[in-house]
C-alpha cells in the first residue's frame, strides 16, 4: 500500500493533472483578451504586369504595410503569424486568396511595424482575369499560443484595382 512504486505513481499522476489543468487555464484565459489591431496598406507601384507563356496573369506589386498588433499579445502568446493576401473573385473561381507577404512576430515589442516590400510570393491568377480587376487586401493573423487553442482573425481592406492593360 505504501510502497515506493505507489507513492511515485501517485505523485506523477498528481503532477500531470496539475500541469494539464494549468495548460487548460492558460488557454481559457486567452478568451478574456479582446484585441483591436489596426492596419493600413498602400500599393505604391505596379512593377510589371504580364501574361505568362502558359496563359496565367502575373503581377508584381510594391507594397507599404503598416500594422499595430500589440493588443493580440497575452501571456500565453508564443508568436503571431501575420500575412497579407490578395482576395478576389473570377468567373471561374468563387474565391481566390493569394498570399503576397507574410511574417512572424515573436514578441509584443515587434508587433507595431511598418514595412516597404515587393510581393514575397508570386501573384499569379488561375487564368487571365487580372486586367482591371478589383481586389481586397486582407491582413490575416494567426495567434500561436504557448499552449492550447489557436486564434485567428483578419482585417479586410477593399478598393484596390489592377490596371486595364499589361505593362
Amino acid at each position: 500500500m505504501h510502497s515506493f512504486g505507489y507513492r511515485a505513481n501517485a505523485l506523477l499522476t498528481f503532477a500531470i493533472t496539475i500541469l494539464a489543468l494549468m495548460c487548460a487555464m492558460a488557454s481559457v484565459s486567452d478568451n478574456f483578451n479582446s484585441p483591436s489591431p489596426t492596419s493600413q496598406v498602400q500599393v505604391l507601384n505596379i512593377n510589371w504586369f504580364q501574361k505568362k507563356p502558359d496563359g496565367d496573369d502575373e503581377v508584381s506589386l510594391t507594397l507599404n504595410i503598416s500594422a499595430n498588433l500589440e493588443s493580440l499579445f497575452t501571456w500565453n502568446t508564443k508568436q503571431v503569424f501575420v500575412f497579407l493576401a490578395a482576395e478576389y473573385e473570377t468567373p471561374k473561381n468563387a474565391l481566390n486568396q493569394v498570399s503576397l507577404w507574410d511574417g512572424i512576430i515573436p514578441s509584443k515589442e515587434h508587433s507595431k511595424y511598418w514595412i516597404h516590400t515587393t510581393n514575397k510570393y508570386r501573384f499569379i491568377d488561375q487564368g487571365s482575369n487580372l486586367r482591371g480587376k478589383n481586389f481586397n487586401l486582407t491582413l490575416h493573423w494567426h495567434v500561436m499560443p504557448k499552449t492550447g487553442k489557436m486564434f485567428s482573425d483578419k482585417i479586410v481592406m477593399s478598393g484596390f484595382r489592377l490596371p486595364e492593360s499589361y505593362r
Binding site: 503569424f81 500575412f83 468567373p91 471561374k92 473561381n93 468563387a94 474565391l95 481566390n96 486568396q97 493569394v98 498570399s99 507574410d102 510570393y121 488561375q126
Partner: peptide, 15 residues
C-alpha cells in the same frame, strides 16, 4: 500552412 487558395464556383472544389 496554406498560402494560396483557389475555390471553384460551380463545384466548390479547392486548389
Amino acid at each position: 500552412r496554406v498560402i494560396k487558395v483557389h475555390e471553384r464556383k460551380d463545384t466548390g472544389e479547392v486548389d
